[in-house]
Computed example of a mutant assay.
Amino acid sequence: MGLILGQWLAAKGVTAIGTAGGPEKTELARAHGYAHVIDYQAEEFVARVREITGDQGVHVVYDSVGRDTWRGSLDCLRTHGAFVNFGQSSGLIEGFTLADLARGSFTACRPVLFHYIADPAELRRRAADLFACVLSGQLRAGVRQRYPLAEVAEAHRRLEARNTTGATVLTIEQELGRKTEA
């Protein structure tokens, strides 16, 4: 998700700050639209965001990690900033209260895909926007790893452990020996 988000934000003219773990992932993030990339394994991300923004903070944080990062994500926001949590790779957020938003008159949301695509017309509009960006070359949705369906458990373990980048595809062997993607 992060690689697509970086490209999409760059296409919209946003100066985005990304976080990634390790040199390989930070280089990949830079190549996918992030103007600044913080290696959270080597740097304290809140301090680095504050440095990059001249201690102003950012307008919005998109947090896919959850439990391990939500407090720091709020610390990165400027007054009236927005916290968007769209994942929980480290676990569910615990201890969050409305008082946490009062520190900067923040807003928070937890978008769920199904609410955005429940209406068929809205789904078509959103899909058209996405595919227009892909066709124009603004977004590259590269497959970075493939697993045979028989190894789905290993693929899932690697996804949960955040040991993947980009798209992960499961392949299915068909009777004629051709591979198709699921």
Rank of each mutant, 00 (worst) to 15 (best):
M1N: 03
G2Q: 03
G2Y: 00
L5K: 06
A10M: 12
G13D: 08
G18I: 12
T19G: 10
A20M: 10
G22N: 04
E24M: 02
E24V: 00
E24N: 14
T26V: 14
A29F: 14
R30P: 00
A31I: 13
G33C: 07
I38A: 11
D39H: 06
R48I: 09
V49T: 06
R50A: 09
E51G: 08
I52L: 11
T53D: 02
H59P: 04
V61H: 05
V61M: 07
D63V: 06
D68G: 00
D68N: 04
R71V: 06
L74I: 13
C76A: 04
C76T: 04
L77R: 09
G81F: 14
V84R: 00
N85M: 02
G87Y: 10
S90Y: 11
A102K: 15
C109M: 15
C109W: 07
P111L: 01
H115Q: 12
A118I: 11
P120N: 09
A121E: 10
E122Q: 15
R126F: 12
A127R: 03
A127F: 10
A127M: 15
A128C: 01
F131V: 14
C133N: 12
G137P: 13
Q138E: 05
G142H: 03
R146I: 06
A150L: 11
V152M: 12
H156E: 03
R162D: 01
N163M: 08
N163D: 14
T164S: 07
V169C: 03
V169P: 02
L176G: 02
L176K: 09
T180L: 10
